[in-house]
């Protein structure tokens, strides 16, 4: 592409686009350290809004709930999603139907899955709470883990699986001693991605968490705060939430790119 590009124009485009992407969130981060808390006036650097967060019981309990949901759903999704990926890639012939089922959770509009699950749980008379949020989050989380692991499996040398079998290993032994260690970076990358998605997910949690105050997750809390009265603490909260995502994604990206040391 370089041959067609005017370097100066390209630089202007990149600068404009990155400014568009990063100015709004940077403003939030800056405001979270603004003593006065108002966007229109800088009154001095302060971390007091972070302190406020810690004293806000609603936010802390929502954060705890989110952590529970994200950890449990990520664990389940990582297990199921990785097995699914290996199962799909080990077969030479791919089924279109299978592909659709696996792909669907990633493209189905959140609102549709959310109301579908809401109807499903209510018709089965399931009391909704954090457990139903977890059940629901596993659906899309496992699809994302599966897609990350599958991408790595595309470059996986399947002959090492045959080599292991040839040397006398049964299938479970091969999975545990050969496939798992080689795939571990990709599996962890997938898990980190799932964790991020789950921490940030709002719509499905909103519909499947039930009415109880004790099953409010952090994004639900943020939504409520934005909608019914913005307080300056939200800037601090937003900064922390973004930081968590950024760290998890960066780690995920590194693991996935580098592969195993010595590979």
């Amino acid at each position: 592409m370089a041959s067609l590009a005017n370097p100066r124009l390209m630089l202007v485009i990149l600068a404009a686009v990155f400014a568009f992407l990063y100015v709004p969130i940077s403003v939030l981060v800056a405001l979270s350290f603004n003593e006065g808390g108002l966007p229109t006036a800088w009154t001095g650097f302060s971390t007091k809004w972070y302190g406020e967060l810690l004293r806000n019981g609603d936010i802390m309990s929502a954060a705890f709930n989110t952590l529970v949901v994200a950890l449990v759903s990520t664990a389940l999704a990582t297990l199921f999603g990785s097995l699914l990926a290996v199962g799909v890639e080990i077969r030479r012939r791919k089924g279109r139907f299978l592909e659709t089922i696996i792909f669907a959770p990633m493209i189905i509009p959140d609102i549709v899955l959310a109301i579908a699950l809401l109807s499903f749980f209510s018709l089965l008379n399931v009391t909704m709470g954090l457990h139903t949020v977890i059940l629901s989050h596993v659906v899309f989380n496992l699809a994302f883990v599966c897609s990350v692991v599958r991408a790595r499996l595309k470059t996986f040398d399947w002959s090492i699986v045959e080599a292991s079998t040839d040397l006398g290993a049964s299938m479970p032994v091969t999975l545990f001693r050969i496939v798992l260690p080689v795939m571990l970076p990709a599996i962890i990358a997938g898990a980190l991605l799932a964790f991020t998605l789950s921490v940030d997910e709002f719509i499905i949690a909103f519909f499947t968490a039930g009415a109880g105050r004790d099953s409010i997750t952090l994004p639900m809390q943020i939504f409520a705060m934005i909608r019914f009265g913005v307080t300056p603490e939200i800037n601090a909260l937003a900064t922390i939430v973004m930081a968590v995502s950024v760290v998890a994604l960066t780690l995920s990206q590194r693991l996935n790119r580098g592969g195993l040391p010595g590979q």
């Binding site: 966007p39 921490v199 940030d200 800037n235 939430v241 973004m242």
Partner: peptide, 20 residues
Amino acid sequence: FAVLPFWSNYLVRTYAWIVL
């Protein structure tokens, strides 16, 4: 870096525009 914001919280990114 172009994709990074995509993975941060949707509500937060939307809220940033309210502030602006």
